[in-house]
């Protein structure tokens, strides 16, 4: 089996090649993030499939083209899940974006779940960074650079991800006129607390006794009712400090849903461009020049463009 997979990786390298502008397209669910690719860019697909799943090690090796839904279906058979956001895309796409799942408080950040990566470099070579064990120090953390880089430093081929046990119960609740920050402080089992200016929506998960106890405690803040899931999320993704949510300006965001304690805000209007200072831009530019000297990987993609 591993021979077949390795052949797939080798042929992915060959497809990427060593010259000409090139980018990977996964399921295309968030393909517009970072802006349009340069017009002459060749678009390729990464190989797909779960290579090795070791529930007892809490690790899974998966090819980048695998749909996240397929990965999570396999993990759930062993009572586990990953940190990747479930929104219809591929593993490679989720890593290239680096956006966390809505329930990040319980699932952890995407970038913390990556143990090892293989990617195709700008000169068409397969490169491995990190190690497959749940804890490892393996030299400089190149993998961290790749997560969220939108394919501008290397094209993801395969990842070893950390998995986590899925809690026994998970339930959604919502209520009106309730201080969402108080909810966040009180509910230890909350995987997410959302607030749209009126309604507070949260998911509690864990041992049934803990979820029940949290719900009893939350009752002191107001009346909650069971609900199906999160409210519809406006299209643009803002990144703020958790404390900034207290002073959220509805005029700038339009209608919004804010993730309390996290700082992500889903809004009707895009966030203003967040330009890092010159010294940071200089390091980022040097890294781009080191990893992709000819600028052939995902040309046109702008990491600072609003999502």
């Amino acid at each position: 089996m591993s021979v077949t997979v390795d052949r797939e990786l080798v042929s992915f390298c060959a497809e990427v090649g060593a010259t000409g502008p090139v980018a990977v397209r996964g399921a295309g669910t968030r393909f517009e993030v970072g802006g349009p690719l340069a017009p002459e860019t060749r678009v390729v697909a990464a190989p797909a499939g779960i290579r090795e799943y070791r529930p007892e090690e809490m690790t899974v090796t998966v090819l980048a083209g695998t749909p996240v839904a397929e990965l999570h279906a396999a993990l759930s058979a062993a009572g586990q899940r990953s940190a990747l956001a479930e929104r219809g895309g591929t593993v490679g796409g989720a890593l290239a974006l680096g956006e966390d799942d809505l329930r990040v408080l319980a699932r952890g950040k995407v970038r913390n779940s990556v143990l090892q990566l293989r990617y195709v470099s700008a000169d068409g070579v397969l490169v491995k960074v990190g190690a497959p064990t749940v804890k490892n120090v393996s030299g400089f953390d190149v993998g961290r650079l790749m997560v969220g880089a939108l394919g501008t430093l290397g094209l993801l081929a395969e990842a070893v991800l950390r998995t986590r046990p899925t809690p026994a119960v998970a339930r959604w609740w919502c209520g009106e006129g309730i201080d969402p920050c108080a909810v966040r402080d009180l509910a230890r089992s909350a995987s997410v607390v959302l607030f749209d200016g009126t309604t507070t929506t949260l998911q509690l998960e864990g041992h049934e006794v803990d979820v029940d106890a949290d719900l009893v405690a939350l009752g002191r803040l107001g009346a909650f009712r069971a609900c199906e899931g999160p409210p519809p999320l406006p299209p643009h993704r803002w990144s703020l400090r958790p404390s900034e949510l207290l002073r959220l300006d509805g005029h700038a965001t339009g209608s919004y849903v804010a993730s309390i304690g996290v700082g992500t805000v889903f809004a009707d209007r895009p966030q203003a461009r967040r330009e890092p200072p010159a010294a940071v831009r200089a390091v980022a530019a040097r890294l781009k020049a080191e990893f992709d000297p000819s600028g052939r990987l995902s040309p046109g993609r702008d990491l600072l463009a609003a999502h």
Binding site: E99, R274, P276
Partner: peptide
């Protein structure tokens, strides 16, 4: 200090 800082994860 924000949820998902922009740019490469330096």
């Amino acid at each position: 200090l924000d949820a998902e800082p922009a740019g490469l994860d330096l």
